[in-house]
Simulated scan of single mutants.
Amino acid sequence: MDKTFAYRRKEVVVDMPSIAEFQSRWPALFAESEISAEFTRITTIPLMSKFMSELDHHSAKLSRVCLKKGGVAGRKIAEIMASINENDTIATRRACNLKSLAVYLNEDPEKLIKEYLDVNFDNAQSELDMTALGIYVIKHEGADASDPPEDVTRVLKSLNNDGNGNNKHL
């Protein structure tokens, strides 16, 4: 990928292809591992650890901004943020901030972050296979809110058109 960076940059800046064209020419750039590798190659900083550290750094400001939202969204955000009072851990703070940000942006956080009990793993696996973007949290049956999850999975899949007008996962 590093050998083709200059060529890809020129293609984006000069030719300005559509996202679909660019994705068909460079599908690897739409895979999570390649995005992380490309970010690390360009910046020499690991993407996920940088994202999490910046999320932690701006957590208080992000919470304040989200809590200022009014109306139905503001009430939903207040309910989400109440979890921090019950269990103030870094994982809870991150989850609450990400869910609140989704609500703030008029998105349904349940479509982004899904929680399952370990006994329902088959349901989670079937939904995970059909998801293009999401975060799945698997918890032990009977676990307290303060207990750490069994597993957390990030899903980032590229959708490609199969020629019949149907999207398929790569």
Rank of each mutant, 00 (worst) to 15 (best):
D151Y: 10
V12P: 01
S126H: 04
H57Q: 13
K3E: 10
W26N: 12
V72R: 07
E86P: 00
K168W: 04
I135G: 04
L133Y: 11
C66A: 15
Y7P: 00
P149G: 09
D162W: 14
V65Q: 08
A31S: 09
T43S: 15
R75K: 14
K76P: 00
K76M: 14
R93F: 02
P17S: 02
T131V: 03
R93N: 09
F51D: 00
L112W: 03
A31F: 04
V152H: 05
F51P: 00
F22C: 03
I35C: 03
C96L: 02
Y116C: 02
V14E: 10
S49N: 09
A132H: 04
K69C: 12
A143G: 13
T43F: 14
S33E: 12
D108E: 10
A37Q: 13
K10G: 05
Y136M: 15
E110W: 04
E127V: 01
V155Q: 07
N123Q: 11
D118N: 14
A20C: 04
F5G: 03
V152K: 05
V13H: 07
L29W: 07
L133G: 03
G142E: 06
K111Q: 15
N106V: 00
V155T: 13
F121K: 10
I77C: 13
G70F: 00
G134R: 12
S158A: 11
L67E: 13
A132K: 08
N167Q: 11
D162R: 08
R41C: 11
D147C: 13
P46F: 06
A82E: 15
L112Y: 07
A145S: 06
T89F: 03
R93H: 02
D162Y: 13
P27H: 06
I138L: 15
E141K: 11
H57K: 14
Y104V: 00
D2T: 12
A91N: 07
Y104T: 00
R64P: 00
R9L: 13
D144R: 12
K76H: 14
L101T: 09
L170K: 09
D151V: 09
M130R: 12
I84G: 06
R154W: 14
E79A: 13
N123E: 11
V13F: 12
R25M: 12
A132T: 10
N97D: 03
K114T: 06
R9M: 09
N166L: 11
N87A: 12
G74S: 04
I138F: 15
K111W: 08
D144T: 08
M130F: 01
